[in-house]
């Protein structure tokens, strides 16, 4: 009986100790991850064409997908094709050109969409279907 009691107490102590160890490891790992990321520099991307964006920059940073989603439903479901909040509109201004003057996809490394989304660790699900370069129709614009 005494032995059983002892073993039981021992097990409890062991599990408590394990919990402390696991939490310490997790915490230290967590802080080191945060420290590592603190050194990641802000994303750098090519500047856009045109004077200013369709909305103030701080609003766009936070809510661009809300605009895109709203517009996408309007376009797909109702056929409203105003360019202001359309994905094609974003790409028209934000796609960069390479040395040969050809458009680079906005989801390529270091480009407008990709650089921020990598920084924020948010997967983009747009460009498995949508073209990531301006269409020929607008590629003439400055």
């Amino acid at each position: 009986m005494i032995w059983g009691d002892l073993i039981e107490r021992g097990c409890k102590w062991l599990s408590r100790a394990m919990r402390v160890v696991v939490m310490t490891i997790a915490l230290s790992l967590g802080t080191s991850v945060i420290e590592a990321y603190a050194e990641v520099s802000q994303p750098v991307f090519p500047s856009a064409r045109g004077e200013q964006c369709v909305e103030p920059v701080d609003i766009m940073r936070r809510d661009h997908f809300e605009f895109l989603k709203h517009q996408r439903d309007k376009t797909v479901r109702e056929g409203i094709r105003t360019p202001r909040h359309s994905l094609a509109g974003c790409i028209d201004c934000h796609a960069d050109k390479d040395a040969q003057g050809r458009f680079v996809p906005v989801n390529a490394k270091g480009q407008f969409c990709q650089s921020c989304h990598v920084y924020a660790a948010v997967k983009i699900d747009c460009f498995s279907c949508h073209a990531a370069r301006p269409s020929e129709r607008v590629s003439q614009s400055p």
Binding site: A88, I91, S128, C129, H130, A131, P134, S135, R137
Partner: peptide, 13 residues
């Protein structure tokens, strides 16, 4: 997976 979609015709896997 598809590549080279047209702007006016988004399509994907």
């Amino acid at each position: 997976d598809l590549t080279g979609q047209k702007t006016h015709a988004p399509r994907g896997k």
